[in-house]
Design a protein around this nucleic acid. Structure first.
Length: 288
DNA sequence: CGTAGATCCTGTTAGC
DNA sequence: TGCTAACAGGATCTAC
């Protein structure tokens, strides 16, 4: 559910509310939320106690709390929201919502951090960090378009050698991270490219424009607090974002294309769906 | 090796 | 109205 703009909105809230605070105790409900933490939930909770939160970081759709353990060594609490995860900061006395999987109390008795996830595709794990502070658990994720060291020319070069559809490539977090189904469709519409076009068949300038459009649409969404269709995506205070009003194609099937008025179509794509304007984004004769 | 497909889970909505 | 099937913002593992 959450893509880069939504995750960045959450990261900012975590950074504001948790930086400088010391973890007192962590409560984990069930083993699934910690399935990526191989030693298990009890180990995770024990290792988090007495850590100080230095700040909240992000790469693509991965979030982590930069921690300093009691000895002063760095480590990271890596968090992923999956399709339906929420990270909420609020009073520990508040009623416990359904699907509450983890809660973190702090030594200052201030607001509690909660991880709520309806489908539990998300989860928490403790990770070591490399010399740059990047958690090793996130090392397989490519830089996202908001990263100061993001190398668009290098991504374009890789796309030119990529087999398969351009949309599949856009969604590959090992190539460029942060883009999900919403912003892939929106970026393709802005560029006038159908997602089934072969990545390598597009020109370098077109691929570059596509990456620029992806960054641009995500930046605009971030300004609106992200995209929320329902109460599932919310920031750390439980509030929705407003970019859903600005979507040109995603979820807009049957409505007119904002550019040419042709009706937007939805079609199946890799166990999910794609939305596009059949006039602005003509289907390739031979889909990749 | 790179790529495509199935799978994890729960809730909501569309359609009969 | 009630049931059932399809679908939902994602990543990972397996099988070609």
């Amino acid at each position: 559910m959450p893509e880069l703009p939504e995750v960045e909105t959450v990261r900012r809230g975590l950074d504001t509310h948790l930086s400088g605070r010391t973890i007192a105790a962590v409560s984990l409900r069930g083993a699934r939320v910690a399935r990526r933490h191989l030693p298990g939930p009890d180990d995770l909770a024990a290792r988090l106690a007495s850590n100080e939160v230095v700040g909240a970081r992000r790469r693509g759709k991965y979030l982590w709390l930069e921690l300093r353990d009691p000895v002063g060594d760095p480590q990271a609490l890596v968090m992923h929201l999956g399709m339906s995860g929420q990270l909420l900061v609020g009073p520990g006395s508040a009623p416990q919502p359904a699907h509450l999987h983890a809660s973190v109390d702090f030594a200052d008795d201030g607001p509690q951090l909660r991880f709520v996830d309806q489908r539990t595709f998300g989860g928490l794990a403790l990770s070591e960090v490399d010399e740059t502070g990047l958690p090793v658990a996130v090392a397989h994720i490519a830089r996202d378009p908001f990263d100061p060291l993001f190398d668009a020319a290098a991504v374009v070069a890789r796309l030119k050698t990529r087999r398969g559809a351009i949309k599949t490539a856009l969604l590959d977090q090992g190539l460029v991270s942060g883009i999900g189904n919403i912003y892939a469709d929106e970026a393709l519409w802005r560029t006038g490219i159908h997602g089934l076009r072969g990545a390598a068949n597009l020109t370098k300038p077109t691929l570059r424009r596509l990456l620029d459009n992806a960054r641009e649409v995500m930046a605009e969404a971030l300004e609106q607090g992200g995209t929320s269709f329902d109460a599932l995506y919310v920031n750390v205070n439980g509030a929705s974002g407003y970019f859903d009003r600005r979507l040109a194609v995603y979820g807009q099937q049957g409505r007119p294309c904002p550019r040419c008025g042709t009706l937007i179509r939805r079609e199946a794509f890799a166990n999910r769906s794609s939305h596009y304007c059949p006039r602005c984004q003509p289907r390739p004769r031979r889909p990749a």
